Amino acid sequence: MAKFQSYKGLINKSNEICKFTIENKSNVSTSKKALFNWSSGKDSALALYKILHNPDYKIEYLLTSVNQQYQRISMHGVRVDLLEAQSKSIGIPLKVMQIPEMPTMEVYENVMTETLTELKNQGITYSVFGDIFLEDLRKYREEQLAKIGFEGVFPIWKIPSHDLIQEFISLGFKTIVVCVNERYLDKSFVGRIIDQNFINDLPENVDVCGENGEFHTFTFDGPIFSEPINFKAGEIVYRKYEKPQNQNSSDAACDTNTSDAFDYGFWYCDLIKE
């Protein structure tokens, strides 16, 4: 039986004054209706924090892709019940996209188009992302969105990674590493809370925000939450993805476009809701 470590004790009780409240503003009717592409991790949390402070936009939904077979957040491996707990604490409805295991680009894009078309019928025409500096990814997103009549919004774009992670920590956010790519990091990094010690331990070739797919996180406390997400850390597992025979298959599972991406595996830390 795996040992479980509770993270109730990491709740930042002194941060109550920083809790973010969405106020009813007189100009809410003129705000642009938007959805937020929510990964459950730190970049999403910081980008959401910033867009919620921007009166030009009103976030109607958190949109998250979930592995249909395992019912976990794509790539991050986080269980759906923890995702739902985040949505409830943030106070924004959740919209889940069910994605097959290792989908082709055609399948993924069809699901996305169907979902966004449904949301567009509700007057939503903006899609917000937590991307930082991957130019090709942004170009792809914007091209796909334009086909459906959406516009992309990138609140933390081109802000230096070191500045972002320090701002994230100083705001009182708490996040745990749930997945690492063994191409960049070993097993010892998964399951760790991101703090200054974690940052100091990162190899020089690893972006401190993991923007190149080096690691992924689950954010469980901070100013966008009405209450922290209680969980315990379970077993750490290793998984290696088979290279798809269909060259049109999505590389989303490995979150990289490098030709040798499938030569490397991933370490995951399972999180269990309390």
Rank of each mutant, 00 (worst) to 15 (best):
A45S: 11
S29T: 14
N37H: 12
A47S: 11
T30R: 15
Y49P: 01
I22P: 04
K25E: 08
I51F: 04
K25S: 13
V28P: 04
Y49R: 00
S44W: 12
K25N: 14
N37V: 07
S26Y: 11
K33W: 10
V28W: 11
I51Q: 07
S44Q: 07
K25Q: 13
D43Q: 06
N27I: 11
T30M: 14
W38T: 11
L46K: 03
L52W: 04
G41L: 05
I22S: 07
W38A: 10
A47R: 12
W38K: 10
S29L: 15
S44V: 02
I22W: 05
K33V: 01
L52V: 09
N24Y: 12
T30L: 14
S40G: 08
L48H: 02
L48N: 06
A34D: 06
I51K: 00
S40V: 14
I51D: 07
K33I: 00
G41R: 05
V28F: 11
N24F: 07
A34Q: 09
S29E: 14
K42Q: 03
S40C: 15
W38E: 06
K33F: 04
G41K: 08
S44H: 08
D43A: 01
N37P: 08
K32E: 12
A34T: 07
L35R: 03
K33T: 03
K50V: 07
K33Y: 09
T30V: 12
D43K: 00
F36C: 07
K42I: 01
E23F: 14
